[in-house]
Amino acid sequence: MVDIAFGPEPGPRPKADDPAAHYMELTRRRRLYGTILLVFFIATMASGFHLAEERNAGGFFSGLPMVFAFPSEVVAEAWEKRANLPGLFWSYLPSLIETLNIAAVSTLIGGALAVIMALLSSPGLSPWPRLTPVLRRIMDASRAVPEIVIALILIYILGPGPVPAVIAIAIHTTGALGKLFSEAAENSDMKPVEGLTSVGANWMQRMGLGILPQVAPNWLSYGLMRLEINVRASAILGFVGSGGIGYDLKIAMQWGLGRYDQVVAIFLLLFLAIAVIDRLSDNARARLVKG
């Protein structure tokens, strides 16, 4: 009723005398747009794959039969030396623990920084609202830099080891979790904060007693999800840079034939660790969300 004051909406008016024809026309036009979009999408995908294929060292169809060649070669050799596997598991356990430690420590550090960033960058919660856009851009940038870039540069400065990987993953985690945390904090109920303000609580108390209890389950759940991602990232960083089981995998792979039992041992350890952590964090998250 009120909208009448603003006049009719822009665009063609429905034909009041023949709604069926109008509906059919609308449907046909939507189908046409959909088809054009689909054709465009398929053409892009096809030409993209063609281009990627041209710029690749090996072709797709020539490589396809080879997909299982390497795994079967590896598994065959490992099967011959299957007696070594338990010993190898044991010897690679410290590397696996290092990889998991890298993931856990970087999640903790990044999570702690993300809490600070999130509270400072949520309008309505931040003590310095003018800072929020700056902090948001910082988080965007730290999310955009791939971990590998920071890790490789830090390896040059700090030398090979787990610390560059921790810093690299922690920076990325700060950006990624900071965004999710601040979204959760913005949607929280402001009444407890107002209540605390009225009794003279300072900012720390308002956040700790008013906001934190509301968002803790959500934040913990996001943090666990990040931990799963970071375990994988830590393994990959080990492979490209140094530290943890990823590095052992690279060494074993470079050796090639003759050490495939080690490759299989590392694959299995990594697979099991990721599966166990995923399962544990899935269960914990389900409990957190359902209360």
């Binding site: 294929e53 710029r55 090996g58 490589g63 990594l270």
Partner: peptide, 17 residues
């Protein structure tokens, strides 16, 4: 992804594909 990437790199060689 790490392990899949290694296995596929063996079959298809380096490149965007």
């Amino acid at each position: 992804g790490l392990i899949w990437t290694i296995v596929l790199a063996r079959a298809f060689g380096p490149g965007p594909m």
